[in-house]
Simulated scan of single mutants.
Amino acid sequence: MRAHPIPPVTEPLQFRAIGLVRGIYIPTDPDQLTRGVLTDCNGLELEAVVLGRVLTLMRRYLAMDQSHLWVVYPRCRDSDRLHLQIVGVWEPSTLAPNQDAADDTLPHSQGDDYFSVRGELIFTKPETGEMAVKVRQQPRHGGKRPLPFKLSIKGELSQKHLRHFVSLDLRRQGQELYLEHHEVIAPMPSRGGRFKGARKQVTARKSR
C-alpha cells in the first residue's frame, strides 16, 4: 500500500486531475451504487459516480452510513456545480487491518478537499479570478484516447502563461476549486513535439 492517496508524478508533463473529499456517499438507488451524491461535512451535496473496484470495497468493507475520505476525479459539467468520479477511498486502518503501521494521517498538502490538477492553461482572467485548464486523459483499453476535458478554477494567473503546462494545488470550497499554489512547467509542445522555449518558471500564490 502506498504512503499517500495521491502519488507523486512520474513525468514533467503528466496530466492529471485528482483530489480528496471527505463525506458520506448516498446512492440514488440503494440497489445500484454507481450513481448518487457525496454529502460533505457541511451538508453540501456533490454529484458523484462510482468507478471500478471501489464498488467491491463499498460492499465488503465500508460502513456506508459513515463518512470516508474518498479519492475522486473532478469534472465541471455545469458552470456552477462540481461532478466527482469516485475512484478510491483512503482508509488504511480499515482496508489494511493486518498492517501494524496502517495510518490514516495525511501530509498537510494532501488534507481534506485537496486537489492536484496538471494540464494546459487555456483561459485566465486575473481581474475576475477565473481560469480554466484542459486535461488530457490516458488511452483506455483498446488504444482509444478519451476526449480532453476542461476544469474551471477560481484563482489568478497571468495571461502570459496561456498555452503553458501548469501544475496546480487547489482546495475545494463548496462547488468550486480555488487555487492555493501553482507551478508553470513549460510552454505546451508544438505539433512537432518541440517546446517554444525551455525556461521553467516556478511561482506560488495563495487563493484570495
Rank of each mutant, 00 (worst) to 15 (best):
Y25L: 00
N98E: 04
L57C: 07
A48G: 07
R140S: 09
Q99I: 12
G197T: 11
D103S: 15
D104M: 09
G197E: 10
I18Q: 04
G197D: 08
K154I: 10
V87S: 10
D112H: 15
R194T: 12
P5I: 09
C41N: 09
R35Q: 09
R205F: 08
R194G: 02
S79V: 13
H161D: 00
G52R: 12
D78M: 12
P74Q: 02
G19P: 14
P7M: 02
L82W: 01
S167A: 08
D31S: 15
H141W: 09
L55V: 07
E176P: 04
L147N: 11
L38Q: 04
R199L: 03
E91W: 13
V135F: 01
V72G: 07
V9N: 14
G143P: 06
M64F: 06
D31R: 14
L13P: 05
V49F: 03
L44S: 03
P97Q: 09
G193Y: 08
I6P: 13
R60I: 00
S207F: 10
R2M: 07
L13Q: 09
H83A: 02
L84Q: 01
L69T: 15
M58C: 09
A102K: 08
R16F: 10
Q137A: 11
V54H: 10
F149W: 02
R81C: 00
R35G: 01
G36P: 04
L106M: 10
S79Q: 13
S190Q: 06
K134T: 04
S67E: 11
R77D: 10
G155E: 00
M188K: 14
K200I: 06
R191F: 05
S207T: 12
L38H: 05
D80P: 03
F123W: 13
A132Q: 05
Q137C: 11
V50R: 12
M1P: 12
D31K: 15
E176S: 14
V54G: 09
R194E: 08
K150N: 00
M1K: 07
S207D: 09
E120V: 15
L20G: 11
H68K: 05
I6L: 15
